[in-house]
């Protein structure tokens, strides 16, 4: 297949019963903005036969009922919606929240801060300053229930994944690679570097809203001393002292 220049957004099928609308082949803020806004718009259209809509970093996925909706018909609907505005300039959806999460950087709780800082060409103090002041967006939720991909971080944090997996990081671990954070919602192995530890549980089975975060939410991982972190986790075992406020539309 010739690698001809492609015009985004592009439409491609996903298996038998899915359509993928992709706004870019790399993660950028405008592409993620377009993704979030277009997802919201498709939901608002409530097209007959559409079963599920979700987003990844720069794509919107639409799954539909192949008995009641034809591929071509859905493509037409999507194309005419795409034409309605410049989605890269679209306003972000309403109802987003800003979360500020107390975070211990480094120490034995998050042992790979030093390594990540060195790879980024920074001292540990500079790394904490950079990561602890970054306001990142929930780009997508995926891989495991309630687990956010967050970013984008600055280009200095465009670090490759490790070649070896870390056997296990705990729930609330803040890990970093390719200019993104993942905030672990479960205990799992990872190929990303464990730079911070929070008391934030993104998936709380049995609570009224088991999944705390939504794509489009924003987060700041505020540096705190370990003693504060331990006190906050004890007082707030579910969110580790995180605060939450609505972002005005």
């Amino acid at each position: 297949m010739a690698q001809a220049a492609r015009d985004f957004p592009i439409l491609r099928t996903v298996g038998l019963d899915g359509l993928l609308v992709t706004f870019a082949d790399a993660l950028t803020e405008p592409a993620n903005r377009a993704t979030l806004a277009f997802c919201q718009a498709v939901k608002a259209c409530a097209w007959t036969g559409v079963l599920e809509i979700s987003t990844s970093l720069a794509s919107v996925y639409i799954r539909f009922d192949i008995d009641s909706l034809r591929h071509e018909a859905l493509k037409d609907l999507v194309l005419s919606l795409l034409d309605q505005q410049d989605w890269q300039q679209a306003a972000l959806p309403a109802g987003r929240r800003l979360w500020q999460v107390p975070t211990v950087y480094g120490t034995d709780l998050a042992p790979q801060l030093g390594e990540a800082a060195a790879a980024a060409g920074l001292s540990e103090a500079q790394a904490i300053e950079s990561l602890g002041s970054a306001r990142v967006r929930v780009l997508t939720i995926g891989f495991a229930p309630g687990q956010p991909y967050l970013g984008p971080l600055g280009p200095e944090w465009n670090l490759p994944r490790q070649t070896e997996l870390t056997p296990q990081v705990p729930t609330g671990a803040l890990v970093l690679a390719i200019s993104q954070f993942v905030l672990f919602a479960t205990t799992a192995p990872t190929g990303w570097r464990h730079v911070g530890q929070t008391g934030f549980k993104g998936f709380q089975l049995g609570s009224q809203q088991p999944i705390a975060l939504r794509a489009g939410d924003e987060m700041i991982f505020t540096p705190v001393p370990r003693s504060d972190y331990e006190r906050l986790c004890e007082a707030d075992p579910l969110f580790g002292g995180a605060s939450r406020e609505e972002i005005p539309a």
């Binding site: 082949d25 970093l57 799954r63």
Partner: peptide
């Protein structure tokens, strides 16, 4: 490649 949606059968 950016991480993308997975469907059963992929």
């Amino acid at each position: 490649i950016l991480s993308e949606v997975i469907v059963p059968g992929d």
